[in-house]
Simulated assay, not measured.
Amino acid sequence: MRSLVVLLAFLALGGCMKVSDMGEAARYQMSDVGLLDHSDTRRIHSFRLQPDSFIYIAQGSFTPPGSAYPRPNVVAEEAFNGFIEYFPMVRRARAPLGLDQAMAEARSAGAHYLLYTRFAKADQRINNYDAWADQQAVDRLGVDTGVIQIMLIETGSQYLIDSARIKSRGGLLTLHNNKPEDQIAAPLAEYARSLLGIGEKWMSD
């Protein structure tokens, strides 16, 4: 209820905001109340990278517990798509790798940092007719959820620069045919922005 009141206040103040800012505020509030996909990122450090940093992205072969089975390298793929917009020097492993192998490939490529990721948890709920026909379990109805873990490691010293945990959940308006891996692109791009110190503009005005 409080979030809806805040949303209405944002709309009432629309004359004082840009259209783009107002739209972003509305989207944020709708995700906060569960209508749209929502994510929460917790970082250990607020370390920032230089824009010309060379980052090698890899994903562990860990299979997350839960009812979903995301494709093996999806976190690395989505992280690459999010990071390439902000860091021109980015490369990605073609398949899941162990940490030692990922570090070796990052060093071989000449990368300054290794971004090592994994899907720690993925729970895919019943969100379409086929899934309901297959499971027919009322307690499985609902929105998908997932957890991603990230380590940012300096390749030269193997020092852990940052560690992050991204928790995501679907929204009531976006749950149809949705999967946990469909929710990770936006928070991974936001994490890339945070490494450059770029925040949400409408929140900083």
Rank of each mutant, 00 (worst) to 15 (best):
V75G: 07
A76P: 03
E77I: 12
E78P: 03
A79I: 01
F83W: 02
F83V: 02
I84L: 13
I84T: 11
Y86F: 12
Y86R: 08
F87S: 03
P88E: 05
M89K: 14
V90L: 00
A95Q: 05
P96H: 04
G98T: 14
D100G: 03
M103R: 08
A104E: 13
A104P: 04
A106L: 06
S108D: 09
S108L: 09
H112Q: 09
Y113C: 13
L114N: 01
L115T: 05
R118Y: 13
R118T: 08
D123F: 07
Q124D: 15
Q124M: 14
Q124Y: 03
Q124K: 10
R125Q: 14
I126E: 01
Y129M: 05
D130Q: 11
D130W: 09
D134M: 15
Q136P: 06
V138L: 12
G142P: 01
V143A: 00
V143W: 01
V143H: 01
D144G: 10
D144C: 08
T145D: 06
I148S: 00
I148F: 02
L152Y: 02
G156C: 04
G156R: 09
Q158S: 13
Q158W: 08
Q158M: 11
Y159C: 02
L160D: 04
D162W: 05
S163M: 15
S163H: 09
A164T: 09
R165Y: 01
R165A: 13
R165P: 00
I166D: 00
R169W: 11
L172M: 08
L172A: 12
T174R: 12
